[in-house]
């Protein structure tokens, strides 16, 4: 391959590291702001380009294996960090996001993905991409919300909590919930076309429903004016349910009959 994964991953991580390094000095040398942003952004751009290239040589969207979903997270997570900085002027999140993206890339570097073009007939559907992409973006937002919440909890423990931080975790959770709802319904509409019924309580469906309920619960608790501080704990922990749904389901006794387990690679 002209543009192989190792090169792309290393290039992205170099961009992110260099961008982060420059950002540290922005307060002292404001001129560095633009190059820092461009470098960090370039890291994600490299990953987006790699996904596009990988897609074209695979002849199918690279969304089938757990490793392939990690590629998407690596490309998208830093973008949320940049968005949050742009909108809420909170800069620490982007470092975490770039760190997490690099972590996903390192996992993929250590476990080279199976280079397999095949896609089973049931996955060859126009619903495949919207269903998975909506979920990916939703998970990315909720991961960011959860980390912001953890950060808020740590600030609380040091009696330094800010309303701005709490509002970031809230809006990220709100947007994430909307995307989870779309993912869930797209999945149901697709299931009707491919497997004959929109809902079969398949373990993955059940866990997706549970994650949705967790955030539904959060939004109602927020609405009921439960203390924002306590809700940061809730948000921080809700993400665990999502993690079970993303890959934990594969290890549960109920997974034996699931149509959703990722191809292991």
């Amino acid at each position: 391959m002209i543009f192989d994964f190792t090169t792309a991953a290393l290039a992205a991580m170099v961009c992110w590291s260099a961008g982060s390094l420059l950002s540290f000095f922005v307060r002292k040398i404001p001129v560095l702001k633009l190059p820092a942003l461009l470098l960090s952004f370039a890291g994600s751009l490299v990953m987006v380009a790699f996904i596009a290239f990988y897609w074209s040589i695979l002849d199918r969207p690279p969304l089938r294996t757990l490793g392939e979903t990690r590629l998407w997270y690596a490309a998208l997570i830093p973008l949320v960090g940049f968005l949050v900085e742009y909108r809420w002027k909170i800069s620490w999140l982007k470092y975490y996001c770039m760190g997490l993206a690099s972590f996903f890339l390192v996992i993929n570097l250590n476990h080279p993905d199976v280079f397999d073009k095949t896609l089973m007939p049931a996955l060859q559907s126009p619903w495949f991409i919207p269903h998975v992409v909506v979920y990916l973006v939703g998970y990315v937002l909720l991961a960011a919300s959860s980390v912001t919440a953890v950060h808020n909890v740590s600030l609380q423990l040091r009696s330094k909590s800010t309303a701005n931080g709490e509002s970031v975790s809230h809006y990220l959770a709100l947007l994430g919930f909307v995307l989870l709802s779309f993912g869930l319904i797209f999945g149901a509409l697709w299931a009707k076309e491919a497997w004959g019924h929109y809902w079969t309580w398949d373990p993955k469906e059940t866990w997706a429903f549970l994650s949705w309920l967790a955030y539904l619960g959060y939004l109602h608790a927020y609405r009921y004016k439960i203390e924002k501080g306590k809700l940061q704990w809730y948000l921080a922990l809700s993400f665990i349910v999502l993690l079970v749904c993303w890959f934990g389901v594969n290890y549960l006794p109920s997974a034996q009959n699931s149509v959703h387990t990722y191809t292991q690679s």
Binding site: V249, Q256, N257
Partner: peptide, 9 residues
């Protein structure tokens, strides 16, 4: 639902 999500149905 968690009961249904953890134990085979």
């Amino acid at each position: 639902s968690m009961i249904g999500g953890v134990f085979p149905q």
